[in-house]
Design a protein around this nucleic acid. Structure first.
Lengths: 194, 194
DNA sequence: AACTCATGTTACCGAACGGTAACATCAGGC
DNA sequence: GCCTGATGTTACCGTTCGGTAACATGAGTT
């Protein structure tokens, strides 16, 4: 894939949708997305079965990025669940910058999709279960007592940060998040020494 | 206002809107709202200038309830900012039960209203500023060092809890919230003794 | 040249939805 | 009885938007 290779139409449409969905929510019209991608609605529908399918694929892309991030985390700190947890929180704090304007893309999409059987929701639900389980496994691997409870607390803080960027601001939420996570790690460390 | 007084049409429409907006978001049609209120669209528009006005009034109602709650908190613990903060967190934890299905009504409304000049958004923004300032004042009144920072942290936790009810569940989020707030209060208490 | 295949263009359909006009109904007050 | 005011009913308008049909264009292949 040389650097000069232009993006395929499929990719360009997805990129345009990503930009518009993040800024204005999944309510934006397909016509606008096609225009932003430098093409038209007809061609968009030659690449995506429906708008819902486009939304779902967009979600899958976002989640795939997170999976890549997890792979990197594990590669950077193999066998060190504590460091992996901290790295995860730091990465999440860093990613808050993308959401300052309109908040978490996933949370917004959830709020904007009322139908519980929407394909994108199924994708999100499954991702949440996996992410949650990942944290539980890490907490157990780290030897924390009550790994489920501790994992919930981590998850709670991270999701809370995403929801709060709009009202408190990026910088402060990041600081709070790291401070709280550090406190939690320290607390559980103390408990482990008992 | 005897107990047998039937609700006025205005109130009935607002009640129906409250139910439907919470369950399905502000995207539900006015026709459905009118039907749920036992009337029709025409009458609805005789009581509300527009759908946006209805949404805004619904939001004002929600926020007015929170103001009432604050009055009660202050009346229950006059001159005791610490107790007021704790009471506030406990009340918020209790109110999470209403959101288990679809999350916080305010957060959802924000995600579903892209226009930044929507009347409901103005109402929400002003409420957030007031709520935030309230917490800052309480933290200052309680003698916490860095009252702005501490207030941000309280706010962060509370909003985070609202955002997390859907994915973790009511019971656990409530526990986490109270535990974390208690930790925070204890931490700041220690700092004050230094 | 002929064929193929992806893309561009235009025009359109149908449904959902916010909002309104016109008229009917019906209760209460004078 | 009559007036008035609030409500019910129906039909409609205009817009937005997801989605599609039909045809044109244009590049690459053989």
């Amino acid at each position: 894939m040389p650097a000069t290779t232009p993006l395929s139409l499929h990719q360009r449409i997805l990129a345009a949708a990503d930009d518009l969905f993040r800024r204005h929510g999944v309510g934006v019209g397909v016509d606008l997305i096609a225009s932003a991608a430098g093409t038209n609605k007809m061609t968009l529908y030659r690449h995506f079965e429906s708008k819902d399918a486009l939304i779902a694929e967009w979600m899958r892309g976002i989640i795939a990025q997170k999976d890549v991030a997890w792979d990197e985390i594990i590669a950077e700190h193999p066998g060190d669940p504590n460091a992996q947890l901290v790295s995860w929180s730091r990465r999440t704090a860093a990613s808050l910058a993308q959401m300052e304007e309109r908040g978490s893309a996933i949370l917004n999409a959830l709020a904007q999709i009322p139908a519980t059987d929407h394909p994108a929701r199924l994708v999100i639900d499954e991702h949440r279960r996996r992410e949650h389980q990942r944290i539980i496994d890490l907490c157990r691997e780290a030897g924390f007592p009550e790994p489920e409870f501790t994992a919930d607390e981590f998850y709670f803080l991270l999701e809370g940060a995403k929801a709060c960027v709009q009202c408190i601001g990026l910088k402060r939420v990041g600081e709070h998040l790291m401070r709280l996570v550090d406190t939690m790690v320290a607390t559980h460390g103390k408990r482990m020494q008992n």
